[in-house]
Structure formats: structure tokens, C-alpha cells
Design a protein around this nucleic acid. Structure first.
Lengths: 216, 216
DNA sequence: ACCTGAACACCGTTCAAGT
DNA sequence: ACCTGAACACCGTTCAAGT
């Protein structure tokens, strides 16, 4: 008596996006091709293209999905300054967990994901009583800082433990630079050992907030 | 009596890079393929690969080339604050003229081009008497801001006159957003018309410098 | 040493054909 | 409406062969 129901394993845009996120998290951007995706989903190209415009659309949707989840978890009713640090850290951790998002965010023009970040930052800065004419510059600047870090993080994505080895290699390279041409980088090299990306990111946010405070 | 001299049209890494920059400037990243490059140079793949490791190497070298030229033109003996603004503007204009650089810069880990920027920013901040323990955070933050803008600029690269049309379209889209969910973005939409990317970029640099000044 | 270009192993995307 | 998978039009890269 039952009408024909959807196959339990029926394809959907959501399933495709979720699967793509899984594959991107596991193997990075290179691991997601239409071929690997259709194989994993046991289906054909047409099925995927029926739910998704193209690969760019899929990557953008995957990014929106992750970012939306991060932004939904943001606590907004705290002190605006605290909330801004919370948003920034939430984004940093998300990018750290899904490095492919960094490349997407810094590459994409303002799409839903970045729009949500922009809205959130803007509203919090407004709550900080930043004057109207400086508000948009400030929001844009903070946003661009976060996207910049996102891109750098994605470019340097490494598999956890490799990070220390990588930093040591970079430090060694920098130490060999001409001290007359690169005095600053050489000094920076000495610091790379005890370097914490997350802390430095937050320090940058604080510099920003301090600068914004002078606008009042 | 003359020894055999190099063919006047002999290939070299420099010529390959210069040609690649030309093609990237003309048609963007999509216009540069090994095929179009070999055709333009009237040679084969082997010839190109003899001078260049692979396409990534070529793109990185092209980026280094442009950035090095920009950094060479920077005036460093002025007031450090002025010099920093000069560097930032020089980079902005270079990215504006060669939008493909934006994607490269924000994607790449610290390579020669970005290293040079980092060195320059760091040294100027040092001249501003930023205390040692804050110096590296500040330089990293300013660098990331610039790279973030670079990425956004590349993503929104448009052909000059189209820019106004594009901004109008975005503004129209933003105005249709739910005012309860996106109050800030809607307010921002009203400003998009008279928006100047370059000015906003500089405003961000100033916010940064103001923040850094509080570290002293 | 430097160059040629056929060939390889991939891509994303399309589309006639099926249910 | 939803799906299949052969085929198309590309990629970057390699490599035996030439000079």
C-alpha cells in the first residue's frame, strides 16, 4: 500500500556536501575529484551534477556549511570585545581543523560564509561604539586580517607533528639568509621554535581592537 | 671566425617568466597553460621544463619577480609610518595591476616574495620602536592583513569599468537580505556605491598602526 | 646542454540513454 | 525526477629521440 518512497540511500545535495567535506578533511583538496566523489557515493556524474552546479559550487557549499556551523556556535551576548575574540578563535580553529577552507575563504568573493562573518564582526564592532564612518573600514580590515591568516594557514597546512619539523626547517633556511639584507627575518627565525600560531593570531586581533579603540 | 653564439631568440628562465607574466596580466590565471606558453614561445614542453621545475615554480617565480620590483621601489628613509603606508600602497597597486598575484601571495607559504615583504614590514616596525616581544606579532598581523586584502582583491578581480556594475549588483543582493538577520550588511550595502578599495585598504593599515602604537 | 613533440595519466563536464 | 557512464575537451608532466 505504500507509495514508492525515496530510496534509503537516495542522493541529496546535503549528502553530497557532507561526503565532500569528509573527503576534503581526510585528504585535502587534491583528494576531492568528481571521480573519487562518485565512486565513494556509488553513483554517476549525472547524479552529482543534478544536485550541484559544478565543482566550484560544491566547494563553496562545503565552506558555507562548515562556517555556518561555527558561526552558529558563537556566543554574542558577552562583552563585545570578548565576543570578537571568540569569533576569531572559532574561525581559526575551524580553519585549522579543515585547512581546505582557508584557501576557499581567501579566494572567494563575499559569499554566504564570508557574509556571515562580516555581519557578525560588523555588529560586534557596532556594539563597541565604533563611530559610523569608521565602522565599515574597521570591519573590512578585521575581516581581511582573518582571511589572510586563513590563507596562510591553508598554504602551510601540515599534518600536526610535522609542524615542528617544518618550523625548524624554515628557521634553518632563514638563518642562512644574508644578515645585511634580512636582519629582521633572521631575528624572527630565532623565535620560530616556541611559536604558537593560535596565540599570534589572537595577538593580531588584539592589535586590531586596540587600533579600533583609538577611533572612538 | 666567431664562435657559435647563443641564438638571439634563445630561451632562458628570465624570458619564460617574463612571457608568463605577460600572459597572466592579459588573460588571468586561466590564460596561462603549458600549451599556450609553449605556443607563444614557439618551443616545446621540454624546453620550458628545462628552465623551470613545474608550473607552480613558474607561478611562484613570476610572483617573486613582480614583488621584488615593487619592493625595490620602496622609499625607506622617510618617517617609518609614512614608509609603511608607502609599502602597503605599493603592494596594493601591484596586486591591482596583476590580480593573479593576489591568489599566489595568499596561497603561498613564505617564499622569497613574501619574505621580502615581511622583512621590510618588520624593519619598519622596529624603526617605530615597537617593543621586541610584540614586534613579531605586529609584523605578522600587518603582513596577514595585506595578504588577506590581496586574496580578496584577486577573487573580485574585474575589468575596470565592470567594477561599478559589480558593486551595484552586490549592493542590490545585500539589500534583499533579511534585515533582522543581516542589519550590518544592509547598512554596508548603502555605502558600497561610493566605495574606494584603495582608501579602505589604507584605512585598515592606519587602524593597524594605531593599534601598534598602543603597544609601545 | 638544450630542445622537440608524441604520449601518458589525469582533470571537470556533458549528454544521450535509461528507470 | 533522478540517475548511468561513455565520451569530450581539456590539463600538467614525462621521456625517448634529436641537434
Amino acid at each position: 500500500m505504500a507509495n514508492r518512497v525515496r530510496r534509503a540511500d537516495g542522493l541529496s545535495r546535503e549528502l553530497i556536501i557532507r561526503t565532500a567535506i569528509d573527503m576534503l578533511d581526510d585528504g585535502g583538496e587534491a583528494a576531492l575529484t568528481l571521480r573519487t566523489l562518485t565512486t565513494r557515493l556509488s553513483t554517476g556524474y549525472g547524479a552529482v551534477y543534478h544536485h550541484v552546479t559544478n565543482k566550484d559550487d560544491l566547494l563553496a557549499a562545503a565552506t558555507d556549511d562548515v562556517i555556518t556551523r561555527v558561526m552558529a556556535g558563537v556566543v554574542l551576548d558577552a562583552d563585545p570585545r570578548k565576543a570578537l575574540r571568540g569569533v576569531a578563535l572559532g574561525l581559526f580553529d575551524a580553519i585549522d581543523a579543515h585547512p581546505w577552507i582557508g584557501a576557499q575563504l581567501s579566494r572567494q568573493p563575499l559569499r554566504p560564509a564570508t557574509l556571515e562573518i562580516y555581519e557578525c564582526i560588523g555588529r560586534l564592532l557596532d556594539a563597541l561604539a565604533v563611530p559610523e564612518q569608521a565602522l565599515f573600514d574597521a570591519a573590512g580590515a578585521l575581516m581581511n586580517y582573518i582571511l589572510g591568516v586563513a590563507g596562510q594557514n591553508a598554504a602551510q597546512a601540515s599534518d600536526g607533528a610535522d609542524r615542528a619539523v617544518f618550523l625548524a626547517t624554515v628557521a634553518a633556511q632563514w638563518m642562512q639568509l644574508d644578515p645585511d639584507k634580512y636582519p629582521f627575518v633572521r631575528k624572527a627565525a630565532a623565535r620560530l621554535g616556541g611559536h604558537d600560531d593560535r596565540e599570534q593570531f589572537l595577538a593580531g586581533v588584539d592589535i586590531f581592537l586596540a587600533g579600533i579603540a583609538t577611533l572612538t
